[in-house]
């Protein structure tokens, strides 16, 4: 997911307070920034929301890769608006994290130094135009699986950010599927692009949910705190069940020979992605990790004089105003 493998932080707070805190969460009462919260809850949330925000920002890059090559004026506008939304979503999420006492600049520095992670999916390349369709259809589709339940997360600012994001996201998956339909019903070359995109992005999309965490203590704690709403396997199953008929409608083949309907469980059986590849990507060895971090670092470094310049001007103006008063 956009926030993957989030370890819960140990908490050493007063057990009485912890009990009351948990009771409140169990009652679905939102935690707000100035409320007492366990240190572990706060730290885990910073990590999760920060990683989610970073994913939105780095996620601009693979799709941004096609903005200047979009094939029509309308497609260019739709794609630009979508990638812009991702910047907006990053902004909302950073703001939610900032309520926990961390600055956006701090979080940014941690992303740029590689200390904080972002979703594995954005380390994959977008190689043909159908990838832009597939990213909307599969990647946003997978993200929405996770984000819809997160609207009910226990932390107020995070929940409100997710509500706003989900409202804006609704067009993202649709525009992706719309591209896929055009491609799948198009020329032979376009069909080939569509199948190629699905072949490359299917397993990385399944990886977005993270490895099975049914037995993970972190997952159990995070679910109790309602900062994680479902297990990874639950969401992945839901995603596969939703996506298979959509692929069939397009006339595309999901690259999994073991994909079969399982009547008993009422869902599809499917092959696991190659988890060793997933861990390689997390370690920085995905196809685009280096490119992505280089691009973010360059934007940040090249922009320093702009941020400083505008700040300096604002301070001059303030000083002049104070002097005049």
């Amino acid at each position: 997911m956009y926030a993957q493998m989030i370890k819960s932080e140990a908490t050493t707070d007063d057990p009485e307070k912890l009990k009351e805190f948990q009771a409140r969460i169990d009652d679905d009462i939102k935690v707000e920034p100035r409320d007492w919260m366990p240190e572990g809850y706060r730290k885990t949330l910073i990590r999760q929301i920060g990683q989610h925000a970073h994913s939105e920002i780095v996620g601009q890059l693979p799709e941004g890769n096609w903005i200047t090559r979009a094939p029509t004026l309308e497609r260019k506008m739709i794609l630009l608006a979508k990638v812009q939304d991702e910047a907006g979503h990053g902004l909302y999420l950073y703001a939610a994290a900032e309520t926990l006492g961390v600055s956006r600049d701090d979080l940014t520095e941690q992303l740029l130094s590689g200390k904080m992670k972002y979703s594995s999916i954005f380390n994959y390349a977008t190689l043909n135009w159908a990838d832009i369709g597939a990213v909307g259809w599969l990647v946003d589709g997978a993200a929405i699986m996770n984000q819809v339940p997160l609207q009910r997360t226990s932390y107020g600012p995070y929940s409100r950010a997710m509500i706003r994001i989900c409202k804006e996201e609704s067009f993202h998956q649709r525009q992706g599927y719309d591209i896929m339909m055009k491609m799948a019903q198009g020329t032979e070359a376009q069909k080939k692009m569509a199948q190629d995109a699905l072949n490359r992005l299917w397993y990385p999309s399944l990886m977005m949910f993270g490895p099975s965490d049914a037995d993970s203590v972190h997952s159990t704690q995070n679910m109790a705190w309602k900062i994680k709403m479902n297990t990874n396997d639950e969401l992945r199953q839901k995603f596969v069940d939703q996506t298979v008929p959509q692929a069939e409608y397009l006339g595309l083949t999901i690259p999994d020979e073991n994909l079969t309907w399982n009547e008993k469980k009422g869902g599809y059986d499917y092959s696991d992605p190659d988890w060793s590849e997933f861990f390689d990507v997390l370690k920085g060895n995905g196809p685009c990790n280096v490119d992505r971090l280089e691009a973010r670092n360059k934007a940040w470094d090249d922009g320093a004089w702009v941020r400083d310049g505008l700040m300096a001007h604002a301070e001059k103006k303030r000083a002049a105003k104070t002097a005049a008063e």
Partner: peptide
């Protein structure tokens, strides 16, 4: 400036007044 939750009774009822540093948290009704 904002009201802030107190420590007493039900841990979370607002009383003393303090400053919100980062109030991204006014409810936005659906």
């Amino acid at each position: 400036s904002a009201s802030s939750p107190s420590e007493k009774g039900p841990l979370y009822e607002p009383s003393e007044s303090k400053i919100y540093r980062h109030p991204t948290f006014f409810d936005i009704p659906d």
